[in-house]
């Protein structure tokens, strides 16, 4: 309990400018080297993909590592016009945006209750959530098709949204469960003593405290849904297309037509919005070490 009191005083603040010892510098240097090597392993293939997206297929096969003869946008123009990215992009933003908000809210609620209350059946629910992660999705597509058809939601964006929410739910609950469980109970306790109800405790205290966890799970969910292919291709085949449907179809067709330049352009187009979203969101994960508890 004494821990709690200290929280309001940022202890290390004055020492921020403390001098580094030689040992520190050695550790920092080693860390930088290790991280730099890993970053290089990560970045080089990506740069290669990006570079290839400007090349003609001929150039790619002639020499995979030469720079493109000219930095032309032909491949992008092809991907944009043939894959019908414009409308699909807007559909994707709507579907993924709405699903993300819903699944984060519902997932956080469910995970919170499971992590912080013990009641009869809570374990069964948790195992049920886990089970949802273990079964291959495409085996469930035929029955799911039937469920949506029965509800009149087949080939419609709301149908896609609710399916996305349902399939992202176990993942969300599963990861947020760990975050809520790790949050110190004293703060909720203090809030209860102050007379805050369960609703207020959740929305005003616990949810903000879980922010780093929420942000990372939100990013993961965004990616999973943005790139989701199997679900829309089955239950939204005749509906307004989302980006992954168009792009995967395009990428696949380019594979058949052996147009690798356009294929890489399509990949780049898929990745760029996601990267931008990530770079914007990742700030949520930053902050001082103590941020988690000082909201």
């Amino acid at each position: 309990m004494t821990l709690l009191k200290q929280k309001t005083v940022p202890v290390g603040h004055i020492e921020r400018e403390a001098k580094s010892t030689p040992g520190d510098r050695a550790v920092a240097a080693t860390s930088h080297v290790v991280l730099a090597i890993w970053s290089a392993i990560v970045v080089l293939p990506l740069l290669w993909t990006f570079m290839s997206s400007f090349k003609t297929s001929n150039e790619i096969f002639a020499s995979p590592f030469a720079l493109p003869g000219a930095w032309k946008l032909d491949n992008y123009i092809k991907a944009w016009s043939e894959a019908g990215i414009g409308a699909a992009f807007i559909n994707s933003v709507i579907v993924v945006g709405v699903s993300l908000v819903l699944v984060m809210l519902l997932g956080a609620m469910c995970a919170y209750v499971l992590a912080r209350f013990t009641f009869r059946g809570s374990r069964i629910i948790y195992v049920l959530m886990l089970a949802g992660l273990t079964f291959p999705i495409f085996l469930a597509m035929v029955p799911l098709f039937g469920v949506l058809k029965g509800m009149g939601l087949l080939n419609q964006l709301p149908g896609l949204i609710i399916t996305y929410v349902a399939f992202a739910l176990p993942f969300t609950v599963f990861f947020l469960f760990a975050f809520f469980k790790n949050l110190p109970g004293e703060i909720a306790e203090a809030a209860a003593i102050d007379g805050a109800g369960e609703w207020r405790t959740f929305f005003q205290i616990m949810l903000p405290m879980a922010r780093p966890g929420l942000a990372s799970v939100a990013i993961f969910n965004f990616l999973g849904l943005w790139n989701q292919f199997l679900i829309p291709v089955t239950i939204n085949a005749g509906g307004p297309k989302v980006l992954s449907q168009e792009l995967f179809a395009f990428a696949q067709q380019m594979g058949y037509a052996v147009d690798f330049g356009a294929l890489f352009a399509a990949v780049t187009v898929t990745v760029i919005p996601v990267l931008i979203a990530y770079i914007l969101f990742q700030r949520q994960l930053q902050g001082s070490v103590s941020q988690g508890t000082s909201r």
């Binding site: 519902l106 997932g107 609620m109 469910c110 919170y112 209750v113 209350f117 009641f119 629910i125 049920l128 959530m129 089970a131 949802g132 079964f135 085996l139 469930a140 597509m141 035929v142 029955p143 799911l144 039937g146 469920v147 609710i162 399916t163 929410v165 349902a166 399939f167 739910l169 176990p170 609950v173 959740f202």
Partner: peptide, 23 residues
């Protein structure tokens, strides 16, 4: 409890568990 567990579970049961059970 009803809202926090009920809504997510209902969606999950209808769109995930039920199709899986049929499968």
């Amino acid at each position: 409890m009803a809202v926090f567990l009920g809504i997510p579970l209902a969606i999950y049961l209808v769109f995930v568990i039920w199709p899986f059970l049929q499968a």
